[in-house]
Simulated scan of single mutants.
Amino acid sequence: MKKPKLFFFLLTLSALALSPMRASEPEENLYLTPQRLFHIARSINKNLVCYDANLVGGKLDTQKPLNVYWVNREEHMGEKNGLSFIQRKMAYGYKVVAEGNNTSTVTLTAYDGRKLEICQQGAHYVCRTTINGKPAVLKYLYVKVNDRNPLSVDYVELHGESVSSKEKVTERIMN
Rank of each mutant, 00 (worst) to 15 (best):
Y94G: 02
Y111T: 06
P26C: 06
A41S: 15
T12Y: 13
V49W: 01
T129S: 00
Y31W: 14
D61M: 05
R148I: 13
E27H: 06
K89S: 08
E27V: 15
N175G: 11
P4I: 04
N101H: 12
E157L: 03
L6I: 15
D52K: 04
L55G: 01
A23L: 14
D112L: 07
T109M: 09
N45P: 05
E79G: 12
T170A: 09
V153K: 02
R114C: 03
V49Q: 08
V96P: 05
D112N: 15
P150R: 00
C119E: 08
Y155C: 09
P150L: 06
Q120Y: 15
C127F: 11
V143T: 05
L6Q: 13
L13I: 11
V156P: 01
G133C: 09
E27K: 02
N149P: 03
I40S: 02
N102Q: 08
T107P: 04
N102F: 09
N29F: 11
H124A: 09
A53E: 04
S152K: 01
N102L: 11
I40L: 08
G160V: 07
V145T: 06
S43C: 10
V56Y: 14
N54P: 10
E167S: 05
K134A: 14
K95M: 09
P4Y: 11
C119H: 06
N67T: 09
L116P: 08
P135E: 10
A91P: 03
N54L: 07
T109A: 03
L30V: 13
L141D: 10
T33N: 06
R148A: 12
L108I: 10
Y125K: 01
Q35F: 14
Q121A: 11
I131M: 11
L6A: 13
W70F: 10
Y140K: 01
N29L: 11
V156K: 02
Q121G: 00
S164W: 02
V96K: 06
Y125H: 07
G100V: 03
F7V: 00
T109E: 02
R42F: 12
V97A: 03
S162D: 13
M90Q: 07
T33Q: 10
E75P: 07
D52I: 05
N67R: 15
N132L: 10
V49R: 05
N149C: 04
L32P: 08
C119N: 04
T105H: 00
W70P: 08
Y92W: 15
M21D: 14
V153Y: 00
V126T: 00
L158N: 03
M21V: 14
V169Y: 07
L55V: 01
Y155M: 03
V56R: 15
M1T: 11
V163L: 04
V143P: 00
